[in-house]
């Protein structure tokens, strides 16, 4: 029988420093095992990454399924992520997974995908927009709304500017306060979304970010006429086991690590009020 606790040992194939060193540093680690992805995954799934001696942390897989590698964008946060910050290219990293459910990207074929990310919340959504970019013929279009507190905190910068230039997606970037040289939107993501007012017609919207970002985004989407089964989000919960046993990640009878972290708003409403993000 497979011992679910035993992680696979993989290699850090590449590291991108997304935001400058400091208390909110984000680095993207690309990991491989013998030149391939250590396991297959679906957009929205997560993996439990070990920092031995410190513990484990559940981190969403930030790249679309590709068979070649997995990527994780890791925000400096606590003990585990502090340790991971010191990993260098070529070093080993142990992880287990994939865990959780995924965004139903196959069901969405033929529709327009609208991504609304705040801060580090763009990371799990990248597995979706990356997937849409890889299969442009399958979808009716792609909008990416993404904002961070300042321009330095914008991650995947190069990739997003590329998508914009090559017209592979409508990318709407924003930062919270004005900055010299910033010629995109200034204000919160939700304000940017209100301004662009994408049509709910034949579309799905997915959002992730800090609880307040999710709450406000859900409000805006509702005003724009999106119905609750057109809106998806991924939730954060404290996780330890990752496979529905340790008992801490539940919302009502649903274990987020198994039947989440991806929820449609309609499904979230059917769960107990505990599931809705804090006001």
């Amino acid at each position: 029988m497979k011992d679910e606790y035993i992680p696979v040992v993989t290699e850090v194939a590449d590291i991108r420093t997304e935001t400058p060193p400091g208390d909110r540093m984000i680095r993207t680690l690309r990991v491989q095992k013998e030149g391939k992805a250590p396991f297959a995954h679906l957009p929205g799934q997560c993996a439990m990454i070990s920092a031995f001696g410190r513990g484990e942390a559940m981190i969403s897989i930030a790249c679309p399924p590709n068979g070649e590698y997995l990527e994780f964008s890791i925000l400096l946060q606590g003990a585990v992520t502090t340790d991971l910050q010191y990993l260098e290219k070529g070093e080993k990293i142990a992880l287990r997974g994939p865990y959780g459910n995924s965004f139903p990207v196959d069901e969405w074929k033929g529709r327009r995908v609208i991504v609304v990310g705040g801060g580090i919340g763009i990371a799990p959504l990248r597995s979706v927009y990356g997937h849409v970019v890889r299969h442009p013929a399958d979808y009716a279009g792609l909008d990416i709304f993404y904002g961070a507190r300042d321009s330095q905190s914008i991650i995947y910068k190069q990739e997003l500017f590329d998508l914009l230039e090559k017209r592979k997606a409508n990318v709407h970037l924003s930062i919270d306060r004005p900055e010299p040289g910033w010629n995109h939107f200034v204000g919160f993501v939700a304000a940017n979304l209100t301004r662009a007012a994408p049509s709910p017609q034949n579309a799905v919207a997915i959002t992730c970010g800090p609880p307040i970002h999710i709450t406000v985004t859900l409000d805006v989407l509702k005003k724009l006429g999106f119905s609750e089964d057109q809106v998806y989000t991924t939730l954060e919960r404290k996780m330890k086991c990752g496979f529905g046993k340790c008992g801490r990640c539940n919302i009502g009878e649903v274990y987020t690590c198994v039947k989440g972290p991806v929820f449609s708003l309609a499904r979230l409403r059917r769960l107990l009020p505990e599931g809705l993000p804090d006001k």
Partner: peptide
């Protein structure tokens, strides 16, 4: 709380 504080608890 800064990450370094949490990491060094």
């Amino acid at each position: 709380t800064a990450p370094s504080v949490k990491a060094c608890a």
